[in-house]
């Protein structure tokens, strides 16, 4: 499909894989929320993410039938999803931390990527950003609301943040930032600068909530890609050609 080392294609597949897995996580969690509106929100956001993944894959692979095979039949080792996107939380606080960190990183990264000389990609990023503002607002609100519930709730969020932050911290940059910047006509170091600003902004936003951002090691057990692929492929087998 694409050769490794192509900064443009590598970036698109990385972003698309992230959105695909996030869409799967959110739609899988729909139904487990404490009230109907939250389940609708999870489902809606998951649908948005999968729709964004479709758009991104289509920029690399024009034929939808090829995309379907690429998505569902690709070996797990060939997925380029980030460590954060590979997590599959089952608790509210972990989902909250995953999504808050993921959405803020998405927005900060897109602000840089959208300055690309590739006008079509910039327009797509802008439109995706408009849609995801609703997501970021939802997760920001619930992060604050959950932390404010009680000391015990705040502690659970802190534990989830401790779990997710090391993954998020290594997920911001694409695999080859230099190749990405070159392929998109961006100044060298722009992505790393955005990563530093994002990390500082997250720390600043967390402090008023009583949360601390702690450095830590990535837990390999958080990589649940195989589980997610198993679920997606099960559905694919029941309805091939639905991509």
């Amino acid at each position: 499909m694409t050769a490794a080392g192509d900064g443009w294609a590598d970036l698109l597949i990385r972003l698309a894989d992230d959105d695909l897995l996030t869409g799967h996580v959110l739609t899988s969690m729909a139904g487990w929320g404490p009230e109907l509106e939250i389940n609708i929100a999870l489902s809606s956001m998951g649908q948005d993410e999968i729709g964004h993944a479709r758009r991104l894959y289509a920029l690399v692979i024009p034929d939808p039938a090829d995309v379907e095979r690429f998505v569902y039949e690709r070996p797990a080792a060939d997925f380029r999803a980030s460590p954060l996107a590979r997590t599959y939380p089952r608790e509210w606080e972990a989902l909250l931390a995953r999504q808050y960190l993921g959405e803020t990183a998405d927005a900060a990264r897109a602000a840089v990527l959208s300055q690309t000389t590739r006008a079509g990609f910039a327009a797509l990023l802008q439109e995706m950003g408009h849609e995801q503002r609703y997501h970021l607002d939802f997760w920001s609100t619930w992060l604050a609301a959950t932390c404010g519930r009680s000391a015990a709730a705040g502690e659970r969020v802190q534990n989830a943040l401790d779990q997710m932050w090391p993954l998020a911290a290594v997920s911001f940059l694409p695999d080859s930032p230099d190749a990405t910047e070159s392929a998109l006509g961006l100044p060298g170091g722009a992505l790393e600068a955005a990563r530093r600003d994002w990390a500082a902004a997250v720390q600043q936003a967390c402090e008023p909530l009583g949360l601390q951002v702690h450095e830590g090691a990535v837990d390999p057990a958080q990589d649940q890609l195989d589980v997610m692929l198993g679920e997606m492929r099960y559905v694919y087998a029941t309805a091939p050609g639905s991509w």
């Binding site: 950003g129 408009h130 920001s140 604050a144 722009a190 994002w198 902004a201």
Partner: peptide, 26 residues
């Protein structure tokens, strides 16, 4: 709205600002 970290139109880089509801509001 208040979330200002989202992608903007192509142009000069803007500083990323992330905001949350203050604890008091919650």
């Amino acid at each position: 709205g208040p979330v200002e970290a989202a992608a903007g139109p192509p142009g000069p880089a803007q500083p990323v600002e992330l905001r949350l509801i203050p604890r008091a509001a919650s």
